[in-house]
Amino acid sequence: MKPYLVPAETVSFTEEIKKSRFITYLAHTEGIEAAKDYIQSIKAQYPDARHHCWAFVAGRPDDSQQLGFSDDGEPTGTAGKPIIAQLLGSNLGEVTCVIVRYFGGIKLGTGGLVKAYGNGAQQALKILPTQTKVPQKVFNLVCDYSLINGIEQLLVQVNGVILHSDYNETVSLQIAIPATLEQEANDKLRDISRGTLTLTSEPQ
């Protein structure tokens, strides 16, 4: 799970082509539900528009299970596909693009539509600020009370956090650490516990 780029903020780009107005929005959306919610929010913002075409990459850039797109009434393949092509080409993750179209009375033809929607996404991507996201991995730990201080110090060193804790006869912890630091954290954990503890992944 390598770090990847995500949108740092929401941007918009507006263009008029043969009296049709195309308004493009790009936003950071983590997960499919967040992407769908964002699409609905844009539809609510422009209820009188003829089309609200969209595409999203809801997870990592290489996670093909979290892709989606729609032509929303435009001829098949003329809107959603050119938008998703731009998103995939950008190598961004957790991004949703919605392009609102107000029809101006002049038909653009299929080639014109592909160009208009693809260009809207491309121009918005050019002005989009990005930031790097480091994926987190979740682990379970069961340890003695005597090791808690050492584990807390370890988490500070690797930018980890405790998500959940149960204090009974032993301590059960659910922790999250950057996936890129798993090996380092595991080595330190073995040192702290003299080889009795290792990181156990949460089942996916």
Rank of each mutant, 00 (worst) to 15 (best):
K2L: 04
K2G: 07
P3S: 06
L5W: 11
E9I: 12
E9M: 03
S12I: 00
S12M: 00
S12R: 05
F13Y: 04
E16I: 11
E16W: 01
K19E: 07
K19Q: 13
K19F: 09
F22C: 10
Y25K: 13
H28T: 08
E33R: 08
A34N: 00
K36G: 10
D37Q: 04
D37I: 05
D37F: 07
D37L: 04
I39H: 06
K43Y: 08
Q45P: 03
R50G: 12
R50K: 02
H51E: 03
H52D: 05
C53D: 13
W54H: 03
W54T: 10
V57C: 04
A58Q: 07
A58H: 12
A58I: 04
G59D: 04
D62R: 14
D63T: 05
S64G: 10
G68I: 03
E74W: 05
T76F: 15
T78D: 06
A79S: 07
P82A: 08
P82T: 15
I83T: 09
I84A: 11
A85I: 00
A85H: 11
L87A: 05
S90K: 08
N91Y: 09
L92I: 12
L92C: 08
E94H: 01
E94L: 01
E94V: 09
V95Y: 04
C97M: 07
V98H: 13
I99T: 05
V100K: 11
R101F: 02
R101T: 00
F103M: 04
F103Y: 08
G104Q: 12
I106W: 09
K107M: 03
L108Y: 12
G111H: 02
G111T: 08
G112P: 09
A116D: 09
A116L: 12
N119A: 14
A121R: 04
Q122H: 07
Q123W: 14
A124W: 11
A124G: 01
L125A: 05
L128Y: 04
V134S: 14
P135Y: 12
V138C: 10
F139E: 00
N140G: 01
C143L: 09
C143V: 02
Y145N: 03
Y145D: 03
S146F: 14
L147E: 09
I148T: 01
G150A: 15
I151L: 00
E152S: 14
Q153S: 02
V156T: 06
V156R: 02
V156A: 13
Q157K: 03
Q157V: 13
N159F: 14
I162K: 02
I162T: 13
L163V: 10
H164C: 02
Y167N: 15
V171M: 09
S172Q: 13
A179H: 07
A179K: 04
E182N: 10
E182W: 13
A185M: 14
N186C: 02
R190A: 13
R190C: 02
G195D: 13
L197K: 06
L199E: 07
